[in-house]
Amino acid sequence: MTTRLTCLFLALLPWCAFAANERLYVNDKKAPETRKDLEALQAALVKALPQARAATVCIEIGEGSGSGVIVSADGLILTAAHVTTGVKKKVTVVLEDGTHLKAETLGLVAETDAAMMRIIEKGTYPFVEIDRSNSTRLGDWVFALGHAGGFDKSRGSVVRCGRLVRIAGATLQSDCILIGGDSGGPLFDLTGKLVGIHSRVGEQVQVNMHVPMSEFINNWDGLVKGEFIGEGPFATKPVKGNGFLGLATDARPEGGLRVTKVGNKSPAQEAGVKEGDVLLKLNGTPLEKREQFQDLLKEMSAGDELTLELERDGKKQTLTFNLGAR
């Protein structure tokens, strides 16, 4: 019975796809032994690399940068939660050829470091296939890509080869050597399928940790919807009302709020708000009363982006910046 079911299943698969994704025989040896084994490993890696590289991106966020990988033609990206740090944030994605694209962070899993984002500019992007069958085994040969130390066009993303040396629950460990800037980057099997996302390293160069694909697959819907799943340690859940702007206002009879004080080194001051400015709109909502302004801010959290429309010396201007932490 089992045999028949297996045969049916195989028959349903298109042959070409099956052949292309065949598991490399060297993976089932404890170690490569012959010149032929080494050449087989090398040939598989060299073949899988171009597509893997095309789909690997650098993620520029705030002062730092991480990596990620595109997994759909319309620009869905998998990365690490400690790279995106939160949901619905604006970030910039850089492709291997240097193209900069606008992107938005989607959901994340705070306990295991999984996160998703999406390129918001319309286009057809190079992508890689996810290993949905959880087919990797301990000792399998893998390769890592990532923009180690940040984007460098003349260098490109850096490829490293190694083996899966430990599998433990929500963590894969390999001896592909990672470094800062690689976080969120992809780990591939030798058929070029995505098996993990770089997360963290130990002090020894052999200790490199990745989030397995199961973490993404099991949380897929929540990630797509932009949910903040679970609590820490890789991302801190936003708390409503803990945002800090750092200014005092008075309502004007004709509408708008006049700024009476700007806190020294506050987010408002650093964004360029000045005493005497008249605040007209917060995130598009016309401002009328102090209490209303405070209520709107209470719905926001530290790190959230806000847009302030204001008037200074009769001229309107718009400032966009992030709330600080209270």
Partner: peptide, 9 residues
């Protein structure tokens, strides 16, 4: 650069 955490999982 985003710092990789040194702590283990």
């Amino acid at each position: 650069m985003i710092r990789l955490l040194v702590a283990l999982g």
